[in-house]
């Protein structure tokens, strides 16, 4: 498993066809199986795209500005997720990030 200090990432895997998921699924998109099991991926990720939200929706009033990014997390096996990034407004596509935690359904990362 991971040799780095980052937290492992809580993914799901379809027990029938093996497809991996980051965000929670109710059925497997590929084979429609309803049984998905928890699986840990390495917590290192790469930024695919990022933005800074300066005018948030009503559920996030007062948290602005905050960074969100689309991140590929895992190493030899990876999944793409939408996530918060905690500490770096200068992030660019290709930059490395590490998974911190999943809290209230949101994935949090920080710069490596």
């Amino acid at each position: 498993m991971s040799k780095s200090s980052s937290q492992s990432f809580p993914a799901q895997r379809c027990t029938d066809c093996g497809t991996l998921y980051g965000h929670r699924m109710f059925v497997c998109r590929e084979c429609l199986a309803e049984t998905l099991t928890d699986v840990s991926l390495e917590g290192e990720g790469t930024v695919y795209a990022r933005t800074t939200i300066r005018v948030p929706g009503s559920d996030h009033q007062g948290e602005e500005p905050f960074e969100v990014a689309v991140i590929d997390v895992g190493s030899d096996m990876s999944v793409r997720v939408t996530a918060r990034v905690e500490n770096n407004p200068e992030l660019k596509p290709g930059d490395s990030v590490e998974f911190i935690e999943r809290r209230d359904g949101v994935f949090y990362f920080e710069s490596s």
């Binding site: 800074t52 939200i53 948030p56 996030h60 969100v68 918060r84």
Partner: peptide, 15 residues
């Protein structure tokens, strides 16, 4: 997924 994370529509197009 996107919504709970805080992605707005300008945010989606910012990405």
């Amino acid at each position: 997924t996107d919504g709970v994370t805080g992605v707005t529509f300008p945010g989606f197009y910012g990405l």
